[in-house]
């Protein structure tokens, strides 16, 4: 799937005719069908940028919200990278942009662990295979990479909306098997060796590994606050935050979403983490 997220037009699988008249009918029908669908296939492939998938209009339901927050955040159609950014791609980026190389890094843009698993500024070494997702990258570095590609980081709403899809449904909350798989991942410690990008199945939109690989940076990670019934409910934090008190969580059964919110609110933009990577998005 090098050329875009849209599924390639599948060759009509052999409709096996029993009798000759049917053969003719079926054959003609299939040709017509192919002719009718071919332009669709072509246009879908050329409109999606390479290695990105289209995610259509939808609505994101924030897990936590205050009385004045939107109940439903509209998500406009956008493109999302099919797979996570790899070490190989990130190496290309730092080669072209020396200020993002490990030894050149300004400390406000990434902490001391930035790309610490690489062998050198321009060398991956044995701990970072080219096709593994790049990790130990800060939000600033992820953002700069996206900008370099003419892309951007997905927003929290976009990411959550895309990640809600199961392999077969746009709204994966209705897919029990999918929910079980996610929970299994969240309850398993990160593997010592990260799997290559694209190892997981495509979801409804054609995007892979939104669950089951690494955590991902989003552009507005610093909009997530855990308040009220969770750990942020201290005197200090109550003073820290403007806005009305949180109404509370919308969907108390969505444990993975809680985990993501907790994780995001613990992040700072210069942090780098062993299981935190990113992928890029783009406006339609």
């Amino acid at each position: 799937m090098k050329n875009g997220g849209a599924s390639p037009l599948r060759p009509p699988s052999g409709a096996l005719p029993f009798r000759k008249p049917f053969l003719i009918f079926n054959f003609e029908f299939l040709i017509l069908l192919a002719l009718a669908l071919a332009p669709l296939g072509v246009s879908a492939q050329t409109s999606s940028p390479p290695d990105m998938a289209g995610v259509s209009n939808g609505v994101f339901h924030p897990l936590f919200r205050s009385q004045t927050d939107l109940k439903e955040v509209p998500v406009k159609s956008f493109y999302l990278d099919v797979v996570l950014v790899t070490n190989e791609k990130f190496l290309e980026f730092v080669r072209a942009n020396p200020r993002w190389q490990r030894s050149q890094m300004k400390r406000i843009f990434a902490d001391e662990s930035y790309l610490k698993h690489w062998a050198g500024d321009l060398e991956l070494g044995t701990n970072a295979r080219p096709d593994q997702p790049v990790v130990w990258v800060s939000w600033f570095a992820a953002k700069a990479f996206a900008q370099w590609q003419g892309k951007r980081l997905p927003t929290l709403a976009e990411w959550e909306f895309a990640a809600a899809a199961s392999p077969t449904l746009a709204d994966g909350t209705k897919d029990a098997a999918f929910q079980r798989d996610i929970l299994r991942w969240y309850s398993t410690p990160s593997p010592g060796v990260l799997p290559s990008v694209g190892h997981g199945p495509k979801n409804f939109w054609g995007v892979r590994d939104l669950h089951g690989s690494v955590w991902e940076w989003v552009s507005d990670f610093n909009s997530a606050t855990v308040t009220g019934d969770a750990r942020g409910d201290t005197g200090l934090d109550r003073q820290l935050f403007c806005g009305a008190g949180a109404v509370g969580a919308k969907d108390v059964e969505n444990f993975p979403a809680f985990m993501r919110y907790g994780f995001r609110s613990s992040l700072k933009a210069a942090y780098t983490v062993h299981n935190l990577g990113f992928r890029c998005a783009k406006d339609l």
Binding site: S66, D69, L70, D220, T225, C242, G243, S265, A269
Partner: peptide, 28 residues
Amino acid sequence: PDNVRELAALIGVIFRKDANGDFAHSNV
């Protein structure tokens, strides 16, 4: 907005826009 988000990230300010166009934010 993008630059505001970045500066907020640098000084550790958390914020989001609410339905009225106002902002919930940390005070630092």
